[in-house]
Structures are given as C-alpha cells and as structure tokens.
Amino acid sequence: MSRVSPRAAAALAAAVAAALIALPARAHHSFGSYNMAVTRVVTGVVTRVNPDANHLQIFFAPMQENRKNVLRDDQGNPVIWAVEMGGSAQMAREGVSVDSFPPGTIFSIGLHPLRTSNAVGTRGPSGAIYKCPWRKPPEPGKNCDSVPGSIEIGTGGLLKPTG
C-alpha cells in the first residue's frame, strides 16, 4: 500500500493551518452590480438583520425627512430597503450584529444603490455607520451622527451624498 510522504503530509498540514489562521481579507470582490458613483445617506429603522456569512444585510425602513415616521407605501405599510456590508463575523467585530442592531434601532449609513434597484445598496469599502440612542431619532433632515450619545461604527464619518 502506498503511503503519503512526510514531506507531502507536512505541506498539506501547513496549507490547512494557513487557511485556518488566515485573517479575513478586507478587500472585496467587484462592486460591479452597484452604482459606486452614487452615494445616498439614509437614516432608517431596522426591521431585520440577516447575518449572512458573506455579507451581513440590514433591512430597514427609511425615515421621512421630519424623522417622526418612516416612508410608507400606498397601503400605509413601511417601505423596506436593504443594505449589505462585510461578512457577519467581520461586522460583529465592528459592532454590527443581530444583537446590537435589534428591530427598532435607528441608524444612518452612506450606501451605494444597486444599478437595478434603489431599494438595495452596499456600504462599500468605506464610511462609518452611526447608531442613534434607542428611540432617539435625529432632528428633521439630520442623521444619527448629530445625535448626542450615538455610536460610530467604522471611521471617516458618514459618506458625502452624491447624485
């Protein structure tokens, strides 16, 4: 019976060990499906966090400019948008998780919309997320970064809106 050589076994063990201890790369595959030339800054109320392994997703209801309610459709139901960001493990380390963003959380984010839908966006490679204190929305027209006691996640502040 043929046996695996010690050298091959060592190489395999090294490869597996390298894969297991490798730090997750912050680089991302293409953002090609998103319009990265457009940045929208939105403040919304979390309806659900989907802790997907590859990209954590936050589903939320965008707030009206008066910050007293959320946008609603013709039937009066909240309009739901979604934004995706890094992998769930990475985002949990940054402070975004199912536990830290329960339904009802108010937050602000700069996102780049999907080319085929305005209701979906990506955080992209940069920009901070701000979480308002519980049940304390910003003043009309403002975002969570203006609310005392808000939590900044990431660095660089909110992205500047374009388009």
């Binding site: 109320v45 309806t47 659900r48 007293k68 309610n69 139901n77 909240p78 339904p103 009802g104 108010i106």
Partner: peptide
C-alpha cells in the same frame, strides 16, 4: 416585517 416595531417617534 416584525409587527411589534414602533415606527413612530
């Protein structure tokens, strides 16, 4: 959508 969320502030 979770019906327990209060969207009014």
């Amino acid at each position: 959508v979770n019906t327990h969320i209060n969207f009014q502030f």
